[in-house]
Design a protein around this nucleic acid. Sequence first.
DNA 1: CGCATAATTCGGCCAGGATCGAACTATATT
DNA 2: AATATAGTTCGATCCTGGCCGAATTATGCG
Lengths: 260, 260
Amino acid sequence: MANIPSGNAIAAVAALLGDAARANMLSALMGGQALTAGELARHAGVTAQTTSGHLAKLADARLIAMEKQGRHRYYRLFSAEIADAIHALMAVAAAGPNRHRPPGPRDQALRTARTCYDHMAGRLAVSLADAFRAGGYIALSDGAALITDDGRCFFCDFGIDLDATRAGKRPLCRTCLDWSERRPHLAGQFGARLLDRLLDLKWVVRKPDTRALRITPTGDAGLVKVFGLSYDWCVGASPSPSPSPSSSSWPARRPEDQNP
Amino acid sequence: MANIPSGNAIAAVAALLGDAARANMLSALMGGQALTAGELARHAGVTAQTTSGHLAKLADARLIAMEKQGRHRYYRLFSAEIADAIHALMAVAAAGPNRHRPPGPRDQALRTARTCYDHMAGRLAVSLADAFRAGGYIALSDGAALITDDGRCFFCDFGIDLDATRAGKRPLCRTCLDWSERRPHLAGQFGARLLDRLLDLKWVVRKPDTRALRITPTGDAGLVKVFGLSYDWCVGASPSPSPSPSSSSWPARRPEDQNP
DNA sequence: CGCATAATTCGGCCAGGATCGAACTATATT
DNA sequence: AATATAGTTCGATCCTGGCCGAATTATGCG
């Protein structure tokens, strides 16, 4: 009888995540962008009425936050803690008995670079973590991450003032082990600021309707020049220097991308 | 439609945690000890038949593992990832709108020192983290933790050989923000080894039927002498040097323990 | 061997909750 | 004002899944 209250509290939250429709909505929100009720309905595959009910419940429990804008209502995850919890559940699900199926071609873009709530994940993120470590800007050891004094200067020069971000109880820099790469990348406040900065610089841009990120030609050059990223991070991605059309979508896949 | 599979996978896991009976069982297992089906039934407040069904589901999904021993079946959490996920949900639940009620007197022992799956939590754990930091054995920065070279030597002398533990993908040392103290304590492989060592030395012992830990007189002395722990960590705990009866339970509470 | 205890399986009961159709409110567009 | 779109509320339906009673299978003890 000892832990009943804490167990019930867990159950209340988990039950909200335990419905397929709601889980898919939250999963979509893990991209970090606020989405409208309609978009979430499409993600979940249910009607608008049903979605409305779900969103009300999620908002009531403070799992998501809502902001009205015109006739749209934008929903986003309520906090980084929520994202953490969802992330932990994804890790459990991926390790479960019904193994995460091999990645379809659709997933290639996601594996290359994507957002994970407010920071980056995928090959790009892992390679950046490696590069920062090699450059002596961060100390990485078994899941722990510290930004060195050198790193503090370096990132400040790059446009990320970490001293300004220090406030608040959220970890400055922590690692995040992802389902695609099995190696850690950078999360926490630093991870969030880094993504912001790369988006500002337009080194990466969000692909519409996905969590995937596209690395722009500028970004490609910048990553190599400023961070010393070698090209091998983009194995399986699209390294082709083909004159990219300025339209928002790139070729869905290329033949040689097929292998796992 | 993009994230449907991952959403469904999350939902499957979360649905298992989303039942009060199962959540209470798992919550009980967060103490780190394996429990029998009967004990879990009592924790959950349901009959044995119902419990059996729940345990089968949890085992099927690899959230728990079972080991037969005579006519008992001992259940434990399947992995540290599961514990992480439950922990993350606890954090969300604690931050939720139905605020975590003020701690009853029962909780005082838990707040002082308890297990959190395989490591320690509560005031003791937070104070240890502080002491290690002050001693230069670990570097703590905003949720990240690194063991220094000094620390490696020190802990080796204390009986924790970290080089032997390095293998495996589990983080060596990470922090864990708990619901009671709002400050980080040490988890990961190091956290687990530390708890093991303190139990070996009998500096702390498990209190039966709870996640609470009791600090023995030996432990009290050792913590002060070896780790330089000051007495202020036990505010609200039972610092009384009363000749402790050798029986398993100590006085349930003392009047001055009442304040939050 | 007989008895008690631990745990499971089976079957039936019942409630909570997910879903959608239809009607309604609010905002934007023309 | 009329129309279209975003979103919500209400009511009815339906089904999954938790729960227990009863019976069954193991294991330990005298």
